[in-house]
Amino acid sequence: MKWLLVLVPIAIALEHFAPGNDLLVFAVAAGGIVPLASIMAQATGSLATRLGPGLGGLLNATFGNAAELIIALAALRAGLHDMVKASLAGTIIGNILFVLGVAMVLGGTRHGDQSYDARAARTQATMLTLAVTALIIPAAYLAIVPQAQVQMTSMSALIAGIMLAVYVANVAFTLVRSRADAAAAAGQPGHGDLHHGPHWTPGKAMAVLCAVTVGIIWLSEILVGTVEAASEAMGFSDAFTGVFVLAVIGGAAEQATAIVAARHNRMDLSMSITLGASVQLALLVAPLLVLLSFFVGPHPMGLVFGPGLVLTILFAVIIAGQVASDGRADWLRGVQLLAVYLILATVFFFVPDAAG
């Protein structure tokens, strides 16, 4: 896959020398993100071997969501609030349904039944339920009291602050538990031999992660500049593009790592990445964007998601809670998750205003 790295400078060159060919620039930039995501998967896997699946998953989610945050900030500057919300919702449901589904299918067909830490997965699923509650309540309140539109900005800011505080508590809990799990596993035979790939030193792995993240951020900026024209050229609605195109591209880094981890029988790391990235998007990125919108863009962005987006996130979180209940994964569960994702994609494709 390394030969695809040639697409990175090509995308940068096309942005400057072929500004009118938006679909070509969009496609090349999206392709350039793929090898960068693969390198990020290798670096994160090397770090996860030393730090444990919990902390490794948190680290990967942080670096992986950097592209999503940059895409969203660029859209905020342009006042594309609906596109921001659609992309956030799409990445959350994509991680839970598509990425985890593919990981379970590939891991299950290769290793049969796979196990993971059900306690950690249930904790993440509970955090997602809390996040969905924070998204549903403002939308429900506005539906019941339409005249409360003026208060939505202040309400969104306060709820965003609460969500950020909960995320900080989640990170602290994860760090403490990761140290305890690492200490308990240190004496077990074979500990540290689960990583299939380059065994880099922590310093080298972090340097690679930082460099690759810069590349992904750069290409993400190019994507934002061409996404509307490319979407129109492909015949996609804005809702479908935000939920199922930008979301997949923005989350490519953690998606690649989660799938590779499952193929190497690291379902614990795969679950930590997919659920952890969704938690970070819902409890960190989304409220952070709400607060930043007071300073970026033409007007503040509320925390009120459209009913279609709220329902899709709710369905995905309910299924995630069921999957995370017993600490076991197999290929049939992966097929079930993918089926729900394809059903949602079909609906969004044929209903242009689904994001509203």
Rank of each mutant, 00 (worst) to 15 (best):
K204C: 13
V351Y: 09
D22A: 15
P53D: 02
L175S: 04
S278Y: 02
T109V: 08
V105F: 01
L128F: 00
A118W: 00
S231G: 08
L309I: 00
D353A: 06
P53F: 00
M206Q: 08
I249W: 07
L269T: 00
S46R: 04
L209H: 02
A30P: 14
I92P: 08
H299F: 06
A13V: 14
Y341N: 01
E68Y: 07
D113S: 03
G161V: 10
V171H: 05
Q322E: 11
I137S: 10
A27Y: 06
A183Q: 13
S278R: 02
L269R: 00
L51T: 09
A316P: 09
L209E: 08
L284W: 15
A43L: 06
G235F: 00
I92A: 10
D330Y: 11
V150Y: 15
F98Y: 11
S272W: 00
H196T: 12
Q336H: 04
L337Y: 04
V145C: 12
A74N: 14
A286L: 14
S154E: 15
S154Q: 15
A125S: 14
F315Y: 13
V102F: 01
G20K: 09
P146V: 03
G94W: 02
A324F: 02
G45K: 02
A139E: 09
Q124N: 12
V102Q: 01
T213N: 03
A324H: 08
T274G: 02
A355S: 12
W331M: 07
M1V: 08
I249P: 14
T274Q: 01
W200M: 14
P9Y: 09
G334C: 12
L135E: 02
T126C: 13
N21M: 10
A180M: 03
L246M: 13
R263A: 15
